[in-house]
Structure formats: structure tokens, C-alpha cells
């Protein structure tokens, strides 16, 4: 799981072009939206594509995203449970 979280942080930084942020700057429990990383709705769409492309997870219900994308912890847990690749 720790490895998945590190990989996920790296992918998020790359996909969202978070220029001034390193993997070490993101705590597993930091909120991704709002006060934490400060991501927004366009980033949410990018994360949905990332989940599909990298882990084979299709989020059909956008409401799911709110709980899944709370933090690296919640994302990694969902990916570990549902990934198809």
C-alpha cells in the first residue's frame, strides 16, 4: 500500500503539473481539494481519467468521487480494492 501511495502522488504531480510540489510534500491524509493541495473541479476530471487509464477503474457515479478523492489514503484504498490493471 505504501508503494501505491508513493506512485499515486508521483502520478498526481505529473498529471496535474503541480510544479512546486514534491512527493514528500504530500501527506497521505492531506485533503486533496480545498485547503490541502487546493485542487479544483478540472483536477477532479483529470483524476477520474487517471484512475481509468492507469488502474482500469471507471467511476460511473460522479458522487463517488467526493469520498474517493478525499486524500491519498482514500484514493489508494479504493484503487487497491477495485483496480483491474
Amino acid at each position: 500500500m505504501a508503494e501505491l501511495k508513493e506512485e499515486l502522488k508521483g502520478k498526481i504531480i505529473e498529471v496535474l503539473n503541480l510544479e512546486d510540489i514534491a512527493v514528500a510534500d504530500i501527506a497521505d491524509s492531506d485533503p486533496l481539494f480545498g485547503e490541502g493541495l487546493g485542487l479544483d473541479s478540472i483536477d477532479a476530471l483529470e483524476l477520474i481519467v487517471l484512475m481509468d487509464k492507469e488502474y482500469g477503474i471507471k467511476l460511473s457515479d460522479p458522487k463517488q468521487g467526493k469520498s474517493i478523492f478525499q486524500s491519498i489514503d482514500t484514493m489508494a484504498a479504493y484503487i487497491a480494492e477495485n483496480r483491474t490493471k
Binding site: 498529471v15 478540472i42 476530471l45 483529470e46 481519467v49 481509468d52 487509464k53
Partner: peptide
């Protein structure tokens, strides 16, 4: 590259 799948919004916008 992605065979018309996984199109991200930012580059399009």
C-alpha cells in the same frame, strides 16, 4: 496514443 480514450480536459480546454 490512447486510442481515443482517456482524454483529459485541461489540454482540450
Amino acid at each position: 496514443d490512447n486510442d481515443e480514450e482517456f482524454l483529459t480536459p485541461t489540454a482540450f480546454i
